[in-house]
């Protein structure tokens, strides 16, 4: 059983098509929509978690790409600038996913990318602006 989180960007021409429905049916995958929106550019944006057979997960993402959906793994989208993070910890109570947590051994703030759901609440809440998005998710 594999789990993959990805940021999907649907170009305008695909917005009216039941793509996620086909993805799930044809590849026997479970999905969890972490975020979904239509952006100002008339694009669709979705942060999706897929669960299922490893090979089917990869095939499913390939299927999306062939249709023209831009697919980026979430852990390449939400990043931390390690030089700016001071491990103050103010993000600990902002992150709803438990991805930014206190490491009790070191006192540092750990960024567990695998827990991140791409909500971006940490980005404006971080005073030194150490949290970044590399793929305009808005």
């Amino acid at each position: 059983m594999a789990s993959k989180k990805a940021v999907l960007r649907f170009p305008e021409k695909l917005i009216d098509q039941p793509i996620i429905s086909r993805l799930v049916r044809e590849h026997n995958l479970e999905f969890n929509i972490l975020r979904a929106s239509i952006t100002a550019l008339d694009e669709g944006l979705m942060v999706l978690e897929l669960k299922g057979d490893q090979a089917e997960c990869s095939k499913g993402l390939e299927f999306l790409k062939q249709l023209g959906v831009e697919v980026r793994p979430l852990d390449e989208v939400i990043l931390r600038d390690e030089d700016r993070c001071t491990s103050c910890g103010v993000c600990h109570t902002v992150c709803p996913a438990g991805a930014l947590v206190l490491n009790r051994e070191t006192g540092a703030t750990d960024f567990k990318q695998e827990e991140c759901i791409g909500c971006e609440l940490c980005i404006p809440a971080c005073p030194p602006r150490a949290m970044l998005t590399r793929f305009n998710c808005k």
């Binding site: 001071t86 600990h92 109570t93 206190l102 070191t106």
Partner: peptide, 23 residues
């Protein structure tokens, strides 16, 4: 510790100053 009790409610805590940098 990450949590305190206020008015019988468990409240998560966060710091603005950096302890690792202070160290």
């Amino acid at each position: 510790s990450g949590k305190i009790k206020i008015q019988d409610k468990q409240v998560p805590t966060a710091s603005l100053s950096s302890y690792p940098k202070a160290v």
